[in-house]
Design a binder for these strands. Structure first.
Lengths: 125, 125
DNA sequence: CATTTTTACGACCTTCGTAACGATG
DNA sequence: CATCGTTACGAAGGTCGTAAAAATG
């Protein structure tokens, strides 16, 4: 039981758009896939996350709580991806820090890695 | 490409323990599985994350950066799980907020949900 | 009856362990 | 040569789409 990112994204999208169909369209999958992921996620979470309301669905309180946490997780993942992209573009990194020290410093508004330390993580982007 | 939580946990464990074998033991899987997950993760990340150093391995700078972000993601997931557990134990939730208002207030050291709002997330545990 | 969600089912993909191999001190 | 990491490969499990069914206004 690991609360997979993919499933959390599904829940987030359902919460955001208010329907399985709309979430499926946004995620470029079928409503069937979204529905199945929700079943699996609620099994993992130990709570019913959505319930039918008329022709659509609404999130249960547990679903709203988990959706809120899902946004945190997705944000952290997004930051990780941004960190890798920054690394790829040479904003950070061992070798290029010296070459781009001043430019990087202005860009990130943070101190560059201390000399002698081969790597250091700081705010990028 | 979604930077799966399971794979980030593998990287974190490798970073923490300094070897594939030790990480595999901690995760109750074989070194083969850890090695394959690292290959897949580095493919997704677009960076080499580890490199052989003598008989063991060391993280590359990119690996260290991603491992740092992995800790953020894992922390967020952990909070989500804690949130669900708290919900299951009745610390939060729509119906029980009124009944346990003062106890919950003391327990969480935060204001309880405003009356009239059916749900609200705040610090628990 | 149109729309939305869910379920049954099969094809495809992923992941793991075993076993063999390669690398290193 | 003992130990650590990687690769080949097959079995087991997971995920998705199609199609059919169920629910609702």
């Amino acid at each position: 039981m690991d609360l997979d990112v993919r499933r959390l994204r599904v829940l987030h999208e359902v919460a955001l758009r208010g329907s399985v169909t709309a979430a499926a369209a946004a995620l470029h999958v079928t409503p069937s896939a979204v529905s199945q992921q929700l079943v699996q996620l609620s099994r993992e979470a130990g709570h019913e996350l959505v319930e039918r309301a008329g022709r659509g669905i609404v999130l249960t309180p547990a679903g709203q709580v988990l959706a809120s946490h899902a946004r945190e997780v997705l944000g952290a993942v997004e930051q990780a991806v941004a960190g890798l992209a920054a690394l790829r573009d040479g904003v950070s990194g061992t070798v290029r820090v010296g070459a781009f020290a001043s430019a990087a410093g202005a860009l990130v508004a943070r101190r560059p890695p201390a000399p002698g330390r081969s790597t250091q993580s700081w705010t990028y982007g």
